[in-house]
């Protein structure tokens, strides 16, 4: 399953932030997005995930193929770790959360309420959700925030295993995950400020 992005332009809050962006992501590959704060990495990922329409250009091969992990993990504080994961597994029509619990060392926390987890543990739970979706393309926005080095390598192992099974991953991050992945710096694709017409242009 190949994700193809052609001449994509994206806007945040009505302002174009990135334009002319093209890349393709084949199965078994990972692509790391880099760029300074505010350049539009999150906006790009949300567009690829289908949460907002592109300003121009096309995204192909993403429909019903992607699992998206945002800044917030979508956890319910009053549900236990296992209940949170089971819910997401059944939303994606799958069952079996044991592999995800093992992959992120959550077995000992499975009956703990998600509200009682530390920030790093919550993040691990949020990331383990990717394993229960069964979707081939992972789109992740700064997945390593609040993770310690040990958990980061746990996460890198999970991504590597996913790539090994023919999946692919599109990750926006500022740190080195130790993955053999292409790196795309989105800085050069920054949208030019819109040309300013005569100020009464809109009235003519």
């Amino acid at each position: 399953m190949t994700l193809i992005v052609t001449d994509l332009g994206v806007a945040r809050g009505g302002t174009p932030v990135l334009e002319g962006l093209s890349f393709s992501l084949e199965s078994g590959k990972a692509l790391i997005l880099r760029g300074p704060n505010g350049i539009g990495k999150t906006t790009l990922l949300r567009t690829v995930a289908g949460l907002q329409p592109p300003l121009k250009g096309r995204v192909e091969g993403a429909e019903d193929q992607i699992a998206y992990a945002a800044h917030s993990d979508g956890l319910k504080p009053t549900l236990t770790v296992a209940e949170n994961l089971t819910f997401w597994a059944s939303v994606f029509g799958r069952n079996g959360i044991e592999k995800a619990l093992d992959g992120f060392d959550l077995q000992s926390l499975r009956d703990r309420q998600a509200g009682a987890l530390s920030a790093g543990q919550k993040r691990r739970l949020g990331l383990s959700r990717m394993l229960v979706t069964g979707r081939p393309i992972w789109i992740m926005d700064e997945p390593t925030v609040s993770l310690d080095t040990n958990s980061v390598s746990m996460f890198a192992d999970a991504v590597r295993a996913h790539l090994g099974q023919g999946g692919s991953a599109l990750i926006a991050t500022h740190i080195d995950l130790g993955l053999e992945a292409e790196v795309l710096d989105v800085g050069p694709y920054k949208a030019k400020p819109p040309e300013i017409d005569d100020f009464d242009g809109g009235f003519l």
């Binding site: 998206y68 800044h71 917030s72 979508g74 956890l75 994606f92 959700r129």
Partner: peptide, 13 residues
Amino acid sequence: EDGSLDLLATAPL
């Protein structure tokens, strides 16, 4: 607020 609406929107449902 907790982001699950975004995740539900990308789910098969």
